[in-house]
Amino acid sequence: MLRFIVRRLIQSIPLLFLISAILFVILNNIGDPLATLGGRQRTSAAERDRLERQLGLDQPIHMQYIFWLIGNDWFQFDSDGDGVGDRYGTRRGILRGDLGSSFRERRPVSDVISDRLPPTLLLMGTAYVFTIIMALGVGIYSALRPYSRADNVITALSFILYSMPIFWIALSLLWIFAVTFKQAGLPYLPTVGMYEPGQPVTVAQVARHMVLPVLSLSLISIAGYSRYVRSGMLEVINSDYIRTAYAKGLSGRRVLYRHALKNASLPLVTLIGLDIPFLLGGAVVTEQIFSWPGMGQLFINALDGADFPVLMGLLMLIALLVVIFQILTDVVYALIDPRIRL
């Protein structure tokens, strides 16, 4: 087991280098980060020179990549523009835990990201737990009555939900529960943000703000996941060991949840493990619609301002998590399925 983990980790190192190199080249060319730095006034040529030197943008791209990777505290910079190196850099590089500084916010990328991480984790975590519970419930419910009317309705609904863009679901929910309810004088839900500005932040208030984004995020995934649960359960439910379990005189409930579900949920484990890291970025559209102050909005803002240290940091964080969760998924799979050996 340990050997497997170590081997997989070593294998992933070149992969992460490849990803970072490709991204670095692309992100370096997505726009002009200096265009918006001067505020309303256009950045003058002299100012632009100074900023480029300061941010290290005057260096050739391979040097910028090396600085991003291992830092620039060993390299003499030309800070006054006379062509002679006169000052050592201060960056330590991502390999020494320094993600660089945001162009726009002028503070470390790690601070920028960790400010935005909790709201996204809260939103996506809740949505994900809700998705899994609902998918298990719906999937088991329809697996127990295959091809009945209820099952057919659920199948049709899943197909429809699965064909919807997430923003259309979000807009529809907003329209129903925030706008129409308000017009009709019913209790309505808030439209934007995480809490009401100017009021003390309470759990109940954040929860109220979370209802619609969580629903928007979960509905499509519930539709997808419950199909897996259903087909997994259908496959298992007719197998011999389930008949044996019934023959032993176990209660239906016990057979279902202890014997059948355990095996039927194996494909779900893979699905969950591989999907979790993508959740961090998956909220882009939803966070945008509901003005949720999380990583998705950070990504869009950074993209607008061509703030590539932030973009690099965000994307590499996700790529790293993908790699880690792939390994974790295999390990968990081996732990719950004794037939598999690593």
């Binding site: 992969l15 997505i30 970025g281 993209l303 996700i318």
Partner: peptide, 22 residues
């Protein structure tokens, strides 16, 4: 296949937005 894995390791939507900007 390493290249394919590299592309698969990033969420498609984020990749699309970066490329759209590019």
């Amino acid at each position: 296949m390493r290249f394919t894995e590299a592309v698969l390791s990033l969420p498609t939507l984020l990749l699309l937005l970066v490329m759209a900007k590019f």
